[in-house]
Write a protein that binds this DNA or RNA. Structure first.
Lengths: 149, 149
DNA sequence: TTTACTGCAAAAGGTTTGCATGGGT
DNA sequence: ACCCATGCAAACCTTTTGCAGTAAA
C-alpha cells in the first residue's frame, strides 16, 4: 500500500471515521495525477476507469484530505478551486503565464526568512503560505511582440 | 473629483465605453470602504444609502475595475471572491490568522528579489504576485493554549 | 442616432445537503 | 447493532446572461 493511502487511513481512523473503498479510490487517483487538478477532472478520471465514486463523495472528502495535509488548494480559477497533492513534496510556489496558462513550480528559500520576520514582527505562529506569481513567459511575449525587455 | 474616479473615467473613455452614474457610484463606494470587500457587501452598502445599482452591474464592472488596476482579488473564501482597492497603495501582502480571521497587511521588499530571480531563471516578465500567509495570532495561541513557542 | 449600459429575472455552474440505502467497526 | 459514508437528486449560492428599456456620445 502506498504511503499516501496509509497516511490517510491512519488519519481517518484516528478521527473515529471509516475507511472505505471510495476514499481509497479518491486518494489513489489524486496521487496518480501528479499535477494540479480540480474536482471535475478527478471525477471524470475516476469515471473513465469504471469507478462509481460520486462527485458528492469527492466534495465531502476533500476537506478531510486537506486537513490530513495530502493536498492543498492552489488557486481559484474559472469558477472553481484547483488543488495539488503535496505529500512528500518540497513546499513550492507557482509562477504562471497569464497568456498560455503554463505553470512553473519553484522553490525559493527566501520565503522562509520572510516568514521568520513576520513571526517576530507580528507575533504569529505561521503554518502555511501561498505565493502565486503571474507574468508572461518568453514564448507568449514573442507572440505578442512584447519584447522591449 | 477624486483621483480614482478620474482614473476610471479615463480608462473607460479610452476603451470607447461609456461613463455612467452607476460606474461612478461603484467606484466611489469601493474607495469609501478602505479595506477588503466582497460583492455582496458592496451591494448592500450601496443599497443602504439609497443607490439603485444592481448586483449585475457590479459583476459586470468588476472585470473592468480590475483591468484598470484600481482593485485586485485578494482571496476566495466562503464561496466567493474578496477584493481590495489598491489605487495609490504600496503593494502589500496579507498575513491572516486562521482562527479569528484577523488580517495584517505587510510589505516585504525581499519579494522583489524573488521576482527578479524568477524572471531571470525562467525568462518571464512578471506582472504581479500574491503572497498569502496563514498562521495563528498571539491572542488565539493563548486562547488555544498553543504556546510551547 | 447609434449602441453600450442598466435592472430584472432566469440560467448557469460549482458546491452542499436531505434522504434512503449500504457497509465499516 | 450502531451510525458513518455513499449515490442520487434537489437545493443553494455566486456569478453570468438574455432581454427590453434607457441613456451616453
Amino acid at each position: 500500500m502506498t504511503d499516501e493511502i496509509e497516511t490517510f487511513r491512519a488519519f481517518i481512523s484516528k478521527k473515529g471515521l471509516r475507511n472505505t473503498p471510495e476514499r481509497e479510490e479518491i486518494i489513489r487517483e489524486i496521487f496518480s495525477i501528479q499535477k494540479h487538478f480540480d474536482v471535475d477532472e478527478l471525477y471524470l478520471r475516476l469515471r473513465n476507469k469504471g469507478s462509481k465514486v460520486s462527485k458528492a463523495s469527492i466534495y465531502r472528502n476533500i476537506p478531510l484530505i486537506l486537513e490530513c495535509g495530502l493536498i492543498r488548494e492552489v488557486w481559484h480559477e474559472d469558477g472553481h478551486m484547483h488543488y495539488e497533492q503535496i505529500y512528500g513534496a518540497r513546499h513550492h510556489c507557482h509562477l504562471r503565464c497569464v497568456e498560455c496558462g503554463k505553470v512553473i513550480e519553484f522553490v525559493d528559500d527566501e520565503i522562509k526568512y520572510i516568514e521568520k520576520r513576520l513571526e517576530k514582527k507580528y507575533d504569529f505562529k505561521i503554518i502555511d503560505h501561498r505565493l502565486d506569481v503571474k507574468g508572461y513567459c518568453s514564448k507568449c511575449r514573442k507572440a505578442l511582440k512584447m519584447d522591449g525587455k
